[in-house]
């Protein structure tokens, strides 16, 4: 059988890429600090660099059997992987809305949107389940545990 050809395996480049980006961003910020403050991070970065090079040669530019390859595909977030994209964007939207809409209303919107988006077709069931969940979360986290989650003030009520 022919040996698989060496090719760039983009999926395998993600984690080393994140590592490299993090190191670069880190050292740009600490460039003015004295040596004693960055001695340890430099030591770690040197070790990480050597492992990074090994990963580059063993996994990123590797002879990969195409059938067993763990590809990176943008379709993780739409197409087949639409649901992953939906979950991620819904939670990011939730975080943006939270300071303005408060915990309970943001939760309600998020739950109804996700229940529907992930395949629950019955609106009534979704709304009732979301309402019950939000009510229970409000009681448990805000009333019982007294967490200072962002709340929207409507008249005398904080929700």
């Amino acid at each position: 059988m022919d040996k698989p050809k060496r090719a760039i395996n983009w999926g395998e480049a993600i984690v080393p890429g994140i590592g490299l980006a993090f190191i670069v961003a880190y050292f740009i910020q600490v460039i003015n600090l004295p040596w004693i403050a960055v001695y340890w991070p430099v030591l770690i970065a040197v070790i990480m660099g050597s492992l990074w090079i090994m990963i580059l040669f063993l996994f990123v530019f590797s002879r990969v059997d195409q059938a067993n390859r763990r590809k990176f595909s943008i379709s993780w977030f739409w197409g087949k992987g639409r649901k992953m994209g939906l979950v991620l964007s819904a939670f990011i939207g939730y975080l943006l809305a939270l300071p303005y809409l408060g915990f309970s209303i943001s939760n309600l919107c998020l739950l109804i949107l996700l229940f529907r988006g992930l395949g629950s077709k019955k609106w009534m069931q979704n709304i009732v389940t979301a309402f019950i969940t939000v009510f229970l979360l409000h009681i448990a986290l805000i009333v019982f545990l007294k967490m200072s989650l962002p709340q929207l003030s409507i008249g005398k009520f904080n929700i």
Binding site: L114, S120, M147
Partner: peptide
């Protein structure tokens, strides 16, 4: 899972805030 995923996600975020 269509009910579990949003609930677990919310629980994680609330826990992160706590």
């Amino acid at each position: 899972t269509r009910f579990l995923v949003p609930l677990i996600g919310l629980f994680c975020l609330a826990g992160g805030f706590a």
